[in-house]
């Protein structure tokens, strides 16, 4: 409740502030010469730092892609590591230009907080992890289980809703901190661990015996994670959204980081148009970007599939399957509007 009041207060303050905002975000970003991007600093695969302090992850790649689209140079981005609490004020106050911090798109965040969401770079959902020895195949068999969960999160509420609506009994074992939940599950204080599925994969890696645990197929909540920008700047909003869509489109066309130069010579008019090779096409310029904006994105971070596999998929220790994040024509939900 206190969070909501704070959010409302901040929202009210922002309405006052956004009235003073001068030029558009794109102009501001171009003027200062770099993109300021809010990211997570400690979520494996989405935003974390390597040993030399560089950020890496799926969300981080989206920031780099936007920088590549705007400047043609993916290094012109600065990252602001943000906690779950200060991510929204940081975006509202203009401290960052975009927020790519595994943020769930919800109605209240879109309306009350004054943000715009459109592109979704990861479809997540809350899942369950159990010990293999329990021989559980579905979440519906979890009646009477002790469930480890982090308190104060939507996870805890979703859990209650799910068990209530399926008439299942459970004993919640709640903790304040993520590490405490990990330790409790590892020590066998509960049978089930629940959090977002993407998180379950990285937690499984830190357990003493990963093969003894399975992640159940059920997803009990919708967590569409995507980049957020301030409301009321459609031009900038379009650029951020279509940067993601360009990555998805590139995967659809089979354009990769490696073959993007060859693909420019493709006979396919769709591909030529997408890569800015079609005579008279002004897609890039209409966004306020250069003609070869899509080429720059793909050169910097590759297509969506490549970014996915590198950060969270088979090319990473997390080994998350594409699932909902496969392309729409391969049974997933990643679907980009035509770029023409």
């Amino acid at each position: 409740m206190a969070n909501r009041i704070l959010a409302a207060l901040i929202g009210a303050a922002v309405v006052g502030i956004s009235a003073q905002a001068s030029a558009g975000t794109l102009e501001d970003v171009k003027a200062k010469g770099f993109l300021q991007c809010g990211v997570n600093a400690n979520l494996s695969g989405f935003g974390s730092q390597d040993s030399s302090g560089n950020f890496a992850g799926l969300d981080v790649d989206l920031c780099k892609a936007v920088a590549a689209a705007v400047f043609g140079d993916a290094t012109k981005v600065k990252f602001t590591p943000l906690s779950a609490k200060d991510r929204f004020p940081a975006l509202q106050s203009g401290e960052i230009d975009m927020l790519a911090r595994n943020t769930t798109w919800t109605a209240s965040r879109d309306s009350q907080l004054g943000f715009d969401f459109r592109a979704i770079n990861y479809y997540d959902g809350q899942g369950f992890m159990v010990r293999k020895e329990l021989n559980v195949k579905s979440a519906l068999e979890l009646s009477g289980a002790a469930v480890c969960v982090q308190t104060g999160t939507t996870t805890e509420l979703n859990l209650a809703d799910y068990f209530k609506s399926h008439n299942l009994q459970y004993n919640p074992v709640v903790f304040e901190k993520q590490e405490e939940v990990d330790a409790a599950y590892n020590a066998g204080r509960c049978d089930v661990y629940t959090t977002d599925q993407s998180g379950l994969y990285s937690i499984r890696l830190s357990l003493s015996n990963p093969d003894d645990h399975v992640i159940l197929p059920e997803i009990i909540s919708k967590e569409p994670l995507g980049p957020a920008v301030r409301q009321g700047d459609s031009k900038w909003f379009d650029i951020v959204s279509f940067t993601h869509y360009a990555m998805v489109t590139a995967e659809e066309f089979g354009i990769t980081q490696a073959n993007v130069e060859e693909m420019k010579k493709s006979a396919n008019p769709d591909i030529k148009r997408f890569l800015g090779e079609e005579e008279g096409s002004t897609i890039g310029q209409d966004f306020g970007l250069s003609k070869d904006w899509a080429v720059n994105i793909i050169k910097a971070v590759g297509n969506y599939g490549e970014a996915f596999e590198r950060n969270v998929g088979q090319g990473s220790p997390l080994k998350i399957k594409r699932g909902l994040n496969a392309l729409w024509n391969q049974g997933g939900l990643q679907y980009a509007p035509p770029i023409r």
């Binding site: 400690n42 979520l43 494996s44 890696l205 830190s206 220790p317 997390l318």
Partner: peptide, 8 residues
């Protein structure tokens, strides 16, 4: 604490 989340 941050470095705990590095998948590497």
């Amino acid at each position: 604490k941050n470095s705990f989340s590095d998948a590497a």
